[in-house]
Computed example of a mutant assay.
Amino acid sequence: MRNLILCAALATASLFGMAAHAESIQAGKEYVELASPVPVSKPGKIEVVELFWYGCPHCYQFESTINPWVEQLPEDVNFVRIPALFGGVWNAHGQLFITLENMQVEQKVHDAVFNAIHKQGKKLATPDEMAEFLADQGLDKDAFLKTYNSFGVKGQMEKAKKLAMAYQISGVPVMIVNGKYRFDLGSAGGPQQTLQVADQLIAKERAAQ
């Protein structure tokens, strides 16, 4: 419940926060510079991470803004989504996301999961419920359950937990650029401003290479 409140608080702040201007973003205002940088998954590329939860309404609303932006990212940028794992249904949904990533499903399946939770009122809180729903999206139930319960997926869950701790996150949606800079809708001033901050920090890292 604490993190549900944090999720809501971040988005509320984003509605009233000051817009981030490209020429004036500052550490401690629009973004936080991490004291201990976190290694990126693909050295040589500028990494942009979004931490999210399928059940967060603000992550759901952010999808329509961030997805077109991701599609236009240049070749030297590696975009990664990581599920936030705060226990309970957060972990179940995180395991669902990692499973779907391992199955290499198209974005429309992720969209269907978001819509099921936020438009259809489905909880998708158990593997069987997930499998039944995903069968309607064209996924094989047995293949899904086998992947969901696999050693590889569980290992990736542990990695996601460690990364969230290293990033020092307390709510979602939140973004990290190159393992160094953390920011969110509240600090940036809104969804579009969040991506403007990301663009400036990407440019900052590119210039430093």
Rank of each mutant, 00 (worst) to 15 (best):
I82G: 01
L10S: 06
F52N: 02
F86R: 00
E75W: 06
E23P: 08
A27S: 12
M18A: 14
C56I: 05
E106G: 08
T12K: 11
P57K: 03
Q61W: 07
A92L: 11
L34Q: 04
L15I: 04
F79L: 06
L6S: 14
Y60I: 07
N102C: 06
W53L: 00
G55F: 07
A20C: 10
C59G: 13
L10W: 06
W53A: 00
P57C: 05
A13H: 00
I82P: 02
H58D: 08
I25K: 10
P57N: 05
S41R: 12
A19H: 14
N3W: 15
Q72R: 15
L85F: 01
V40P: 00
P37H: 00
Y54C: 02
C7R: 07
L34S: 05
K29Y: 07
Y54S: 05
S14M: 02
L96W: 10
H21Y: 13
T65G: 00
S36Q: 06
A13T: 05
L10E: 08
P39Y: 14
E33L: 01
E71V: 05
A35W: 04
L6P: 08
A19M: 12
E33I: 03
F52D: 03
G87M: 07
A11T: 06
V70N: 05
A9M: 10
T99G: 03
P57V: 03
I46F: 05
W69I: 04
F16P: 00
V32G: 06
L4D: 15
V32K: 07
T65F: 04
G17M: 13
I5C: 12
S64N: 11
A27T: 10
N78T: 07
N67V: 08
P74T: 10
T12F: 12
G17H: 13
Q72I: 04
S36K: 09
T99P: 06
S24C: 02
V105Y: 09
D76L: 08
E23K: 14
F16Q: 10
L96F: 10
G87L: 06
L4Y: 13
R81L: 05
V77W: 04
E33Q: 01
G44L: 07
I82A: 07
I98R: 14
Y31C: 03
M103R: 02
K29Q: 12
E23I: 15
I46R: 01
Q61P: 07
F16Y: 13
C59E: 10
G87S: 04
A8N: 10
E47A: 09
